[in-house]
Simulated scan of single mutants.
Amino acid sequence: MKPAAFHHRDFNNLQALVAEKEAVGLRVSLCIPTLNEEGTIARIVSVLRSELLEKHSLLDEIVVIDSGSTDRTRVLAADAGAEVILAADILPFQGHRMGKGENLWKAVHQLRGDILCFVDGDIGNIHPRFVYGTVGPLIRHPEIGYVKGFYERPLLAAEGVDPRGGGRVTEILVRPLLQRFCPELAGLHQPLAGEYAARREILETIPFPTGYGVETAHLLDVWRAHGIGAIAQTDLDERIHRNRSLAQLGRMSSEILEAFFSRVPVPSAGAGERLPMISLPDYLQRFPEAASRARKRA
C-alpha cells in the first residue's frame, strides 16, 4: 500500500477550503523554524500572512520559532507580521537544546491549532501552496493524520539551476533505508521535506529528535502507530532553497541514522530526543483536551 497522493491544485480554492475548515471547527497554526534566515524570512512571512491569514483565514496564527539567530531574522520576521519566539523561552524549565527538532517540539506546546503546519525559513520561491497543499488533505480527509509535501529540488550551481540535483541525502541515505526496512514508506517522494502538516493528537504522542533526524523519526513513529493509511503526500511543484554543504549534509545524515536505528527494527527513544509532548504536565495543563486523550490511552 502506498501513501495517498494529492496535488496542491486540489486545494487551491481557498474560499471553499476555509469554509470546510470552519464547518468542522478546526484551527490551523503555522510554524516557521529559523536560524539565520534574514535573506528569505520577511518575504515568507509577508506572502503567507497576506494570502492565508488576512485575505483568506486558512491560518489562525503564524509563529516563527527561532534557535537564536545572530542576524536580523527575528526583527525582519516580526516586522513582516509574525509572532516571533525564541525556542529557549518556551518550556524554559525543560532546558534548551539546539536543533530544528527542538523548535518543532516546542511548537507543539506553543501553537494553539488542531492542525500544525511547518514551512522551512529558507524557501526562495515561497507560495501559499506550500501551506494549503499540506493542510488541505487534513481538512477534507479525517482518516489522514500526517501530510508531507514533495517537489522538484533544483541544485543551485554557479552556472545556474540544475533541475536534476537536490535531495541528495534522501536518495543516497534515506530512501535506501526505507526500501530495506520500511518499504511502504519508500513511496514517499520527499521524506525529509520541511513542508508538512499534522494533527495535534498525532504530534503530541511521539518523541522528537532535537536535530535533523526529526522528519525521519516522525514518519517511522506515525507509520508504526497509525499505519500507512494515516500518511499522505502532496505535490507542491518546485521548491528553491539554500543548499547545504557536504559537511552539513554529513552531520544531517548522522542525525538521521541515529533516529532511524533507534526505531528499526525495535522502536525506542534515541539519545538527544524529547519525550512525547503529551507526557509533560505543563502541556496537559495548557491543553486539557489532551489530558482527556491521555487518560483514554492509559
Rank of each mutant, 00 (worst) to 15 (best):
A217T: 00
T205K: 09
V131F: 04
I90S: 13
A225P: 06
N243R: 14
M98I: 13
Q190K: 06
A294I: 14
Q110P: 01
I126V: 15
A5K: 11
F6R: 04
Q179A: 11
N13S: 05
T205D: 07
L30I: 02
P154H: 07
P281V: 11
R140F: 11
P207F: 02
D71F: 12
P128R: 02
L91A: 09
G124F: 08
P33G: 03
P265F: 10
Y283W: 07
S245R: 00
V266C: 02
T234A: 01
E61C: 11
L220E: 04
S254G: 12
D122V: 01
R175Y: 03
A157G: 10
D89Y: 05
R164H: 13
L236P: 11
P176K: 12
M98L: 12
S69A: 11
R175W: 05
Y146H: 09
G121W: 02
E184W: 04
L220M: 06
L48Y: 00
R72G: 02
H96S: 14
R9G: 04
E152C: 08
L280R: 13
D162L: 13
K106P: 03
I65R: 01
R297H: 14
E238W: 04
I44Q: 12
F260A: 05
T234K: 02
V222C: 10
C31N: 13
E204H: 03
R251Y: 11
A193K: 01
G113H: 10
Q94M: 12
A247D: 12
A107H: 03
A5I: 10
V45H: 07
A42R: 09
L284V: 13
F11M: 07
T134S: 06
D79W: 05
V64K: 09
Y196G: 02
W105C: 12
S67K: 03
E255D: 08
D221F: 11
G145W: 09
Y146R: 00
W223H: 15
D221G: 08
L192M: 14
P276F: 07
A193E: 11
H218G: 06
I144H: 04
D60A: 01
I85A: 09
L156G: 02
E61I: 06
E159K: 13
G113M: 11
P209A: 14
V131W: 00
V75E: 15
D71I: 09
T234Q: 02
F118C: 00
L30K: 06
I44P: 00
L220T: 04
V28L: 01
E289G: 14
D120M: 08
R295C: 09
I228L: 14
A78D: 03
P191A: 06
Q233Y: 06
G136S: 03
S268H: 15
N12K: 08
F93Q: 10
A217C: 01
Q15G: 15
R200N: 04
T34H: 02
L48F: 05
L275P: 12
G121Y: 10
F181T: 09
R164F: 15
P281F: 07
D114S: 00
Q285D: 14
D235T: 01
P265C: 12
F261A: 13
E37P: 04
E37W: 07
I256E: 01
I32G: 07
I206Y: 07
R9V: 14
F208M: 00
L188S: 06
R168F: 15
